[in-house]
Design a protein around this nucleic acid. Structure first.
Ligand SMILES: [Zn+2]
Ligand SMILES: [Zn+2]
Ligand SMILES: [Zn+2]
Length: 1067
DNA sequence: CTAGTCCTGCCAATCGCG
DNA sequence: CGCGATTGGCAGGACTAG
């Protein structure tokens, strides 16, 4: 077929195959359009055309419109884009399927023992892949070298195609593995990379990775593989050899049109970079490296044929295979011009060139209901298929990447790349270790206690390995104690740079200025400790994460804006609010941060917000920030019970119902009314955490009063609203969550009147100008909430906690506060001033008199910032803070400008809505699927905690109940499978931060060197570990990371930031 | 791009030990 | 009480998802 005049690239087939293989292994990229699900639910990504090209079975399957069932499946198990198909292959185990795909994409067959081979062979028969079918009884090695004929023999009836192919065999295409010359770099020159999509590495690293891959291939495929005569190539008509055939047929529309069989054509192939062209006759080079000859004999393998067949269509549009689908882009079909015969891989059934006639009803329906745009993994809903597709990367994506050396699976290319570099370096250890998966599996099992997921097959790591489900991954986190310990020991290494000690995580190489930070971080890898949410099944690696997360459940809003008194759930929300409504630039708000993103309290930082005490005081002490903050700005106010913590302030006398009624009237439904308002405990609002709880409303007044009253009472033991959280919802913590009960210190010292002071602004740059004189001390802040309410009768908390005496200081302060309370400006006052703006918000207006000295903060609109004032433009808002006892906020700004317009950010509305329905954190709602079960941990603590949860009362007996109560971190041992599902994981993986490097900018180069050195050390360590059988740890960790990484990389691979960050690390 | 999460330096509070 | 080791809260920039 190839015309004599034609020039052909002997390496094309191999390179193409290689690329295709990479595509599928790379995870959910734009190229793979079918997901295969093995009996054990393992999922594999592949190309429809490739599958169809090599298996009649797939061809048929894919050529027909997706059956309804499949669809369902797709929606549930994997989100797919319209084009994507999901094929469930219940008769194939993941391992077999993996091997099958490996074969299809690499021409190689992994030997897994007779059984494995047998299974594979069976699969080959059932799928019509002669070569595989013929594996049984054949010597693997031989098999490899076998010619097509052999394969043909094995074929089953399934192959309709069978016959045809042989003829074509004659043409040989070296399956080449990309010869050296073709190395990835060539394919994807960094410089040119941009054009290359996923297939090509965008970055240099990627290039390396590819190169590695190539090398690998070479190793594995030293010679040319025999061409299998397999029938696989579906179309008899299409001769594998005949390059032109397919191409020529192409319809005008297709891009691939270029393929004419001539050299140029090849060039045009998307997969192969132009560079390749030059390769056309790598003559010299290739000959050397490859035995070359690309004679007919060696040349093509079955896969090669497939590739050839595909080459024509591959990029025309995947649609070909799935002509029926409407979803495919409109353009998709166009590509398909060829007659059935022409398209090798194409199902003859769909000759439809007719893009026109697309859709079958059941196919992915043209317009899938949105309902279908549901992530099968997390159940999240998406508005568009594309978004869902992207999202799915998070779940499945690139699990399939595997190390060519050891087979270890990775989610992200980068990770793989780095791993391979290492792997190559330390072949002995790493290579083998991974393969000895047994340990790994064993470990999981042991730890998991029979996790549902353990499937030996899955555990295998290697190319084409099944994607593990989230659960599977998670499970890996569990390590036996011993290991963790071991890990712990090696969790870091230290470097001294310029006299500074820098701690590095051995796992991810992130650097830390402090050991404590590193240790804290290391748990992310080791999961030595787990911090389960008290409300849901999520588990976190850092206590802080859990704490923050729980806010979603409690609805607690601790960040109060001093300008408008609105309270927010997170600092972020507060900041956003102030920026939007008060024109305050973050910079002014407070502390300065360290180069690393860490934070350093400024001595005279001015805080424009108040941080209310944590409702669930896990730690009965006032935080550093609190004291500072309060002392600075809030002194006066603090005296007064803030409205926020209703629960705290709520007098017992007042029944919830009353409150409720109060609340209910007014703004309840109003725009402004936010859920937060109704925090009384009556209902869990759990709502918009992001939303400010409006202190100002009418209710606020009430609250204030109540609060005061409550405060007066001192600690109200009887807190009717026990479930209520400050600012928040009445959600009651389920398992041992101790709400306000915590003894503690919520009350903080307040009092020292040190008037900080502020001044009005003139000049500080941004919008707010402040000037503080002496900020000094202070102790603190005051929160009414302090009431140690321990007592809530309801509170599950054991008496112990309740009984805990408040600190003297705290009490003292508290008392003081109480007394001062009267004079202090209350929110009400503020409200009054705000009244202007406040209507919407329903803030009460109460006129108040300012006492003592006051300072005025001027906030301008962000846009106007600073300058406006200079010019004399009116400040958006002025805040007067009275030093001493009360703070008064004056707002001269028109509310409208500030608040109304911006008003409730969209997010607000959303959240509210959502929240109403489900108090739970929006994002993790889906996590609830799996119940977090009791931890079986051996650790006492854990048990305790558990006990508590199950039966709070039971735990009371122990004197330490409280501790447990508050600290439920679970040790590794307790791993619980279910819990694992919910393990927290970052969006991205841990890698050295760029900033860390920045910090040391000057020394950057040296750092890099060090890192490199470090890495080598790490390798050594790893090797050691491996020797110890501790391989898993790393793997596990890596996998975890990988997941995140994959996400990250997937998205940002090409970005500078990423590169930069990596650079130091990698180079 | 925005909204929101993640990370990590810094430090408060606690715990264990003497 | 001091001291060292831990734990984890906080800020706010870095970074991700959508
Ligand atoms: Zn790390
Ligand atoms: Zn939760
Ligand atoms: Zn505000």
């Amino acid at each position: 077929m190839v015309s004599q005049a034609e020039v052909w690239d002997p390496f094309h087939a191999g390179a193409l195959l290689s690329q295709l293989n990479e595509q599928r292994l790379a995870g959910p990229g734009p190229f793979c359009d079918v997901t295969l699900i093995a009996s054990d639910d393992a999922k594999f990504r592949a190309h429809q055309s490739v599958l169809a090209a090599c298996s009649p079975y797939f061809r048929e399957l894919l050529s027909s419109p997706p059956p309804a069932p499949p669809r369902a499946l797709s929606s549930s198990s994997a989100a797919l884009t319209g084009k994507d198909r999901v094929l469930e292959l219940p008769h194939l185990q993941s391992r077999v399927l993996s091997d099958l795909l490996d074969y299809i994409y690499t021409s190689r067959v992994a030997q897994h023992g007779s059984k494995g081979t047998r299974l594979l062979s069976e699969a080959g028969r059932s799928l019509g892949v002669p070569f595989l079918a013929g594996l049984v009884g054949k010597d693997p090695s031989r098999v490899k070298s076998k010619s097509r004929q052999d394969k043909t023999d094995g074929m089953d009836g399934t192959d309709k195609l069978g016959a045809a192919k042989s003829s074509k065999t004659s043409l040989s295409f070296p399956l080449s593995v990309p010869f050296p010359g073709l190395s990835a770099q060539n394919h994807c020159p960094p410089s040119s990379s941009p054009s290359s999509s996923s297939a090509c590495a965008t970055g240099s690293e990627e290039a390396l990775w590819k190169r590695a891959a190539v090398d690998k291939h070479l190793q594995h495929m030293p010679g040319l593989l025999p061409i299998s005569s397999s029938s696989s190539s579906s179309s008899s008509s299409s001769s594998p050899i005949d390059l032109t055939a397919p191409t020529r047929k192409e319809p005008p529309s297709t891009p691939p049109s270029s393929m004419t069989g001539t050299v140029p054509q090849f060039l045009s192939l998307p997969l192969l970079p132009p560079a390749r062209t030059g390769l056309v006759f790598p003559a010299g080079g290739k000959g050397d490296s490859f035995p070359a000859g690309m004679d007919s004999e060696r040349s093509t393998t079955e896969t090669a044929q497939i590739l050839f067949n595909l080459s024509a269509m591959a990029f025309q549009g995947r649609g070909q295979l799935e002509p029926d689908r409407k979803e495919q882009g409109p353009g998709v079909k166009q590509g398909r011009a060829e007659s059935p015969a022409a398209g090798p891989g194409l199902p003859q059934t769909n000759p439809l060139p007719p893009p026109l006639t697309p859709p079958l009803p059941h196919g992915p329906s043209p317009v899938p209901p949105k309902a279908e745009l549901l992530c099968g993994v997390c159940h999240r809903l998406f508005s568009s298929a594309s978004s869902l597709t992207v999202h799915m990367r998070l779940h499945r994506g690139g699990r399939a990447l595997s190390c060519r050396h050891c087979g270890k699976a990775f989610i992200h290319n980068k990770r793989l790349q780095s791993h391979e570099a290492i792997c190559r370096q330390a072949p002995p250890v790493l290579h083998t270790a991974p393969k000895q998966e047994p340990p790994d599996e064993g470990e999981e099992e042991g730890e998991q206690g029979g996790g549902a997921e353990e499937q030996p097959e899955h555990s295998r790591v290697g190319p084409g390995r099944p994607l593990k489900k989230g659960r599977g991954f998670l499970m890996r986190h569990h390590r036996p104690f011993p290991r963790s310990d071991l890990l712990a020991e090696e969790d870091h290494f230290v470097k001294v740079v310029d006299g500074h000690i820098i701690y590095f995580c051995t796992v991810c190489e992130r650097s830390y200025m402090t050991l404590s930070s590193l240790k804290r971080h290391s748990n992310v890898h080791s999961w030595r400790r787990k911090y389960p949410c008290h409300f849901c099944d999520k588990v976190f690696a850092l206590a802080e994460y859990r704490t923050k997360h729980e806010v979603w459940h409690t609805g607690e809003r601790r960040y109060q804006c001093i300008f408008c008194w609105e309270a927010f759930a997170t600092y972020y929300n507060l900041k956003t609010h102030q920026k939007a409504f008060h024109g305050i630039s973050p910079g002014l708000i407070s502390s300065e941060k360290t180069a690393n993103g860490g934070y350093k309290q400024k001595v005279n930082a001015l805080k424009l917000y108040r941080l209310l005490p944590m409702r669930s005081q896990k730690r009965p002490y006032k935080t550093y920030s609190q004291s500072l903050t309060d002392s600075l700005l809030l002194p006066p106010e603090s005296a007064k019970p803030l409205p926020l913590p209703l629960d705290c302030s709520l007098p017992a006398s007042l029944g919830p119902s009353e409150l409720h009624s109060l609340i209910s009237d007014g703004h309840r439904q109003g725009l402004l009314a936010d859920p937060s308002e109704f925090t009384f405990g009556v209902k869990p609002d759990g709502l918009g955490l992001g939303e400010p709880s409006k202190l100002a409303d009418a209710k606020s007044d009430m609250r204030v009063r109540l609060a005061e009253g409550g405060a007066a009472e001192g600690e109200r033991d009887t807190n009717s609203g026990d479930g209520v959280l400050p600012g928040g919802s009445g959600v009651r913590p389920p398992r041992g969550y101790c709400g306000s009960k915590a003894p503690v210190s919520s009350v903080i010292t307040y009092g020292h009147p040190k008037p900080s002071v502020i001044k009005h602004g003139t000049a500080v740059s941004s919008s707010v100008i402040v000037h503080s004189n002496q900020i000094s001390s202070g102790g603190g802040s005051s929160f009414l909430n302090s009431s140690p309410s321990e007592a809530n009768s309801n509170s599950p908390v054991p008496s112990k906690a309740a009984h805990r005496p408040m600190k003297k200081q705290v009490l003292k302060n508290y008392v003081q506060n109480q007394s001062e309370g009267e004079g202090v400006s209350t929110p009400e006052e503020v409200g009054g001033k705000q009244a202007v703006e406040g209507e919407e918000r329903g803030k009460p207006q109460k006129g108040r008199r300012a006492h003592s000295k006051s300072v005025t903060y001027t906030a301008k609109p962000a846009c106007v910032a600073g300058e406006a004032e200079v010019r004399g433009s009116a400040p958006l808002c002025q805040i007067t803070v009275r030093i001493g006892e009360e703070a008064i906020v004056k707002r001269s700004i028109s509310e409208t400008d500030l608040m109304r317009d911006k008003s409730p950010p969209p997010s607000k509305a959303k959240k509210t809505d959502a929240s109403v329905q489900d108090p739970a954190e929006p994002h993790h709602a889906h996590h609830h699927r799996h119940r977090h079960r009791a931890h079986r941990g051996s650790s006492e603590q854990e048990e305790e905690a558990e006990t508590w949860r199950k039966n709070p009362k039971a735990s009371k007996a122990t004197g330490k109940v409280r501790e447990y109560y508050f600290r439920q971190e679970v040790r590794e041992e307790d791993s619980d499978q279910d819990a694992e599902d919910n393990l927290w994981r970052p969006y991205y993986t841990y890698k050295p931060k760029r900033k860390a490097l920045h910090v040391q900018k000057v020394k950057k180069s040296s750092w890099q060197r060090q890192l490199r050195y470090k890495r080598s050390l790490r390798l050594l360590r790893r090797a050691e570990k491996l020797m110890d059988n501790s391989t898993k740890e790393e793997e596990e960790e890596e996998e975890e990371e990988e997941e995140g990484r994959k996400r990250r990389w997937g998205r940002r691979e090409g970005k500078k930031t990423t590169e930069q960050r990596d650079a130091p690390k990698r180079h």
